[in-house]
């Protein structure tokens, strides 16, 4: 039950886009058509689902104060948490490289469509944000950290597919010229954020 709760919370209540604005850059840039948005969203779910548990292990067995005690009781006082940022980003960058190679090999059409944005998943704030929130919230087990990663990924995917669908339709509407493109996307995202706030407080 706790797993499901964390998963649903990640999708709706603590949505990466609407509550924390993480990953906004690719969210705005790749949301012109549903097809590419869907591809990027799935890539983000995949990368978050892998990197959050990996970083969880890194945090709990290497970086945290006393985490190295499993090597030798002498290391119990070692605190490497200041290295957190650089270790997390290294794990993320290498995982993204791997995903890029897999997509290039097995889905060349998707690879062509995502173009420059696949390597940029490495600098997608939602991936590093997932790792940092995981560190911040101190999840008690690997399973919960994984559910949090997957939930945040699904939330991000949901947000980008929704905005892409709206943007496909809004092309035929009479938006004031200066608001076209970026401006109206910002405002719609704000309105969607307000709508998502109605999920606040849900517990399963």
């Amino acid at each position: 039950m706790e797993y499901l709760n964390i998963f649903v919370k990640g999708i709706f209540i603590e949505n990466m886009i609407f509550a924390y604005f993480l990953g906004m850059c690719s969210y705005l840039a790749v949301s012109k058509t549903v097809k590419t948005a869907n591809g990027l969203g799935l890539a983000v779910i995949f990368v978050l689902g892998i990197t959050v548990p990996l970083n969880y292990l890194l945090e709990n067995y290497v970086l945290k104060e006393g985490a190295l005690a499993w090597l030798d009781p002498e290391f119990a006082s070692v605190d490497l948490s200041f290295l957190g940022f650089i270790m997390f980003i290294a794990v993320i960058a290498s995982m993204v490289q791997l995903v890029e190679m897999i997509v290039e090999k097995f889905a060349p059409a998707l690879y062509g469509a995502l173009g420059i944005f696949l390597p940029l998943i490495a600098v997608n704030c939602s991936i590093l944000g997932g790792a940092l929130f995981m560190q911040d919230r101190q999840y008690p087990s690997l399973g919960e950290a994984t559910m949090f990663g997957l939930g945040s990924g699904v939330g991000w995917w949901l947000a980008i597919v929704a905005i892409a669908a709206i943007r496909e339709k809004i092309r035929y509407s009479a938006v004031p010229a200066p608001l076209k493109g970026l401006g109206i996307t910002f405002i719609i995202t704000g309105l969607m954020g307000i709508a998502f706030m109605s999920f606040m407080g849900i517990e399963i």
């Binding site: 200066p178 608001l179 995202t189 307000i194």
Partner: peptide, 19 residues
């Protein structure tokens, strides 16, 4: 104070700048 308003305000700045 709520997060969504930040988006709307930036949207407004974009609107002013582009007009």
């Amino acid at each position: 104070i709520l997060p969504p308003m930040a988006l709307v305000i930036v949207g407004m700045i974009i609107w002013i700048q582009r007009s």
